[in-house]
Structure formats: C-alpha cells, structure tokens
C-alpha cells in the first residue's frame, strides 16, 4: 500500500512539475479527465477494495470447535474480563487466553464508549453500552501483550491500559483450574 501510494504521488508530482516546461506536447482534455481522472483511480481502488474485503472477511469470527469464549467489560477506567470456561472468576486489567487458539472476546461497556485494542493481536472493537460486539483474537505464541483502550473516555484515558497474557497449553489448564492468579 505504501509503495503504491508513493508511486501515485510521484506520478502527480511529475505531472505538475512537467507543466512548467516551456514546450510541451498537447494532450487532449479527454485524456486528463477520462483516463487519468476516472479510469486510473477506479482501477486502483477496485483492486484495493477487493483486497481489503478479502482480508477483512478472513479476520471475521467463524464458528469452530476450539474457539475460546471470553468477555470484556470496559468501565472508567478499568477492564473486567470473564470466561465461559470458568464461570465464577473475573479478572481485572489482565485477560488470560490460551496461545495458538482462536479467542472470541465479547466486548461491552458499563458506562461510556470504550474501545478494546491489542495492537499485536487484532484491530480495535468498540465497547458500546447496551451492546455486545465480538472480536476474534489469536496469539501465535505464549507471552504478554499490551492492550489499550482506544476511544477517548475522559480524564483517566491516558493510563487506561490492560494486558493480555497468552498461556501455553499447560498454563491455560492451570488457569482454568484456578492455579494462576
């Protein structure tokens, strides 16, 4: 995308610069409007749009046997996480997930609009009061990933962060049996 953008920018820059030459061939009006103005952007955009939709579709939550269901509830300025596999326990500020398995996070808010974002695992999803949005995340390897709330939420917005801890298989079963805090 960056390369394409630089190429297009260069094209425009060269065309603008070339217009300052004292001798230049005549180019028909129709070439400017129809070819450069309409056909060229339309082609590039269609390709990009198709690509975007294709990638977007792949990122969507799909049904599957090994999908782990968790829930995230944002509030000023704290996240609470709960787990379908562990109905009695909630964690604050830290979300535990298994590594190497798809996880569906059901996101909502207890007060104002927040946004759940773990940059290294997935894009953002808003936490809207009264609604539940599902975001699919997946960590390839165990580790701790920084998460942020990415929707302005008032005074505590600066430090409104959380962590996602991805466990290996053993760690995850420990967590489910209550041996990890």
């Amino acid at each position: 995308m960056l390369t394409g953008s630089i190429l297009i920018f260069a094209l425009v820059a060269i065309l603008v610069a070339a217009s300052f030459r004292s001798r230049k061939g005549t180019i028909q009006d129709r070439f400017w409007v129809l070819i450069l103005g309409i056909a060229f952007p339309a082609t590039v955009l269609l390709a990009l749009l198709g690509y975007g939709l294709f990638v977007g579709e792949r990122l969507l939550p799909r049904q599957g046997a090994d999908v782990v269901q968790v829930a995230a509830e944002g509030r000023q300025w704290d996240w609470r996480f709960s787990y379908d596999d562990l109905p009695d326990q909630t964690t604050e500020g830290v979300l535990h997930i298994p590594a190497g398995r798809p996880v569906d996070v059901a996101i909502t808010s207890a007060d104002v609009v927040h946004s759940f974002w773990v940059p290294r695992l997935a894009g953002k999803m808003d936490a809207v009061p009264g609604r539940v949005n599902v975001l699919r995340i997946e960590a390839d390897a165990p580790g701790t990933f920084a998460g942020l709330s990415a929707e302005f939420s008032g005074r505590g917005y600066n430090n409104f962060t959380f962590d996602v801890v991805a466990h290996d298989a053993a760690g995850w079963s420990n967590f489910l049996t209550g041996e990890t805090e």
Partner: peptide, 17 residues
C-alpha cells in the same frame, strides 16, 4: 469518493499543461 476527486485533480493538472 476518490474518483470525482481524481477528476478534479487531473483537470487542474491538465489546465496547467
């Protein structure tokens, strides 16, 4: 929406030519 914007930009560059 980039298409009509493109038309204008290139019409302007064409004007310069």
């Amino acid at each position: 929406v980039a298409v009509p914007t493109g038309v204008q930009i290139f019409a302007w560059i064409g004007t310069m030519w």
